[in-house]
């Protein structure tokens, strides 16, 4: 196990430069771009210069750029301080909002990931096993189509059909008003189960189905194609033929083929995380889901670039962390990886 710990440490240390680069990039982008962010917040209202200065000071914009860079970075790492909001309300620590909204996004991401993987797996394997058939062609069309499905359109369509017309699921928010779940992890589905509150669980479930279905379907297409192509390749490989030559029954051989085909898919899952988080913004906005994505959208309207920066940095950290997790999982699954 010592080898595994060492492996984790090595991979983790590779994430650090990635996150640093992203942070630097975002920082440069937001500070160096034309347009005074303070004025953007203020808009056309008249604000006395003294107050403007105060706002600048609060946003840390009065210090030299390099100082701002390290100040903010250290603030995040050492104190979890992501700066303060610039508008409505002013001066509140951004981190408060971030931690409050994060669980909602995580819950949505996990649920969508499950949906995407399931659909992708079933269609990918189905297409590969029935290669060349009508079903396969349909599945290939599906994978191209999902690539171009615009999340809000699919989301609204599902809201209309499954939410309004069939009244099966809720079309916005996480819980119906009046229902309360004691907060343990912030993941409502989990917390309601922990509290033994089955009706709250069902309520939360009926709220999460449509958004996770939307995001999941849109992202499943890439999975479908990846799994299908990999499986076709594996099914034609030598060791599968060798299995058959030994008289191993077909269903077992298929299982081994799937396991082999699945390994490169695991690395793709890391990339998926980035896409899931990106899609979360649109999904949360469409379904009024109170997560980080929606937070960014709200803050856009207020031109609160400080909050936006904080949220984006947090996203960068999450992406880096998820990639690390995927790396470790990959090492555990594939015996050819040394650690």
């Amino acid at each position: 196990m010592a080898g595994l710990s060492r492996y984790i440490v090595i991979r983790a240390s590779l994430i650090v430069p990635t996150i640093l680069i992203l942070y630097t990039f975002v920082f440069i982008l937001l500070r160096v771009l034309p347009g005074d962010p303070i004025l953007a917040v203020v808009g056309t209202r008249y604000i006395p210069p003294a107050q403007l200065e105060e706002m600048r000071r609060m946003a840390g914009l009065d210090k030299p750029i390099l100082v701002q860079y390290f100040d903010y970075l250290l603030g995040v790492i050492l104190r979890g301080d992501f700066g303060k909001t610039l508008a409505s309300p002013v001066g509140k620590p951004v981190s408060e909002y971030l931690w409050e909204r994060l669980p909602a996004t995580i819950e949505l991401t996990i649920a969508s990931f499950i949906v995407a993987s399931l659909i992708g797996f079933i269609t990918g394997v189905g297409g590969a096993l029935r290669r060349g058939s009508r079903l396969d062609t349909l599945i290939r069309i599906y994978s191209i189509l999902t690539y171009t499905l615009f999340i809000p359109v699919l989301g609204m369509g599902l809201q209309y059909l499954l939410g309004l017309k069939l009244k099966l699921f809720y079309i916005s928010g996480r819980l119906s008003p009046g229902i309360h779940v004691p907060k343990v992890t912030g993941l409502l589905l989990l917390d309601s189960l922990l509290a033994g509150d089955l009706s709250a669980f069902t309520d939360a479930l009926r709220h999460i189905v449509l958004p996770s279905l939307t995001l999941g379907i849109v992202l499943s297409g890439a999975y479908t194609r990846l799994i299908r192509n990999n499986l076709i390749e594996v099914l034609n490989s030598d060791f599968i033929r060798a299995y058959r030559a030994r008289g191993i029954p077909d269903h077992r051989v298929t299982m081994y083929a799937i396991k082999n085909a699945f390994i490169p898919v695991v690395t793709y899952m890391g990339l998926q995380i980035a896409m899931l988080l990106g899609g979360a913004i649109l999904t949360e906005t469409t379904f009024s889901w109170p997560g980080l994505g929606r937070f960014i959208y709200e803050r856009i309207e207020y031109r609160d670039y400080s909050s936006i920066q904080g949220a984006v940095i947090l996203f960068a950290f999450i992406v880096g962390l998820m990639n690390l997790v995927v790396d470790i999982m990959y090492a555990l699954i594939d015996p050819r990886v040394k650690y």
Binding site: I21, L33, P37, M275, G278, I296, I308, V319
Partner: peptide, 22 residues
Amino acid sequence: IIMDSIYAFPSLILAIAVAAVL
């Protein structure tokens, strides 16, 4: 390294951040 980091980051979020400032 720079390009890979940007590539790995959710494109929409980055686009939003830039557009919000501009």
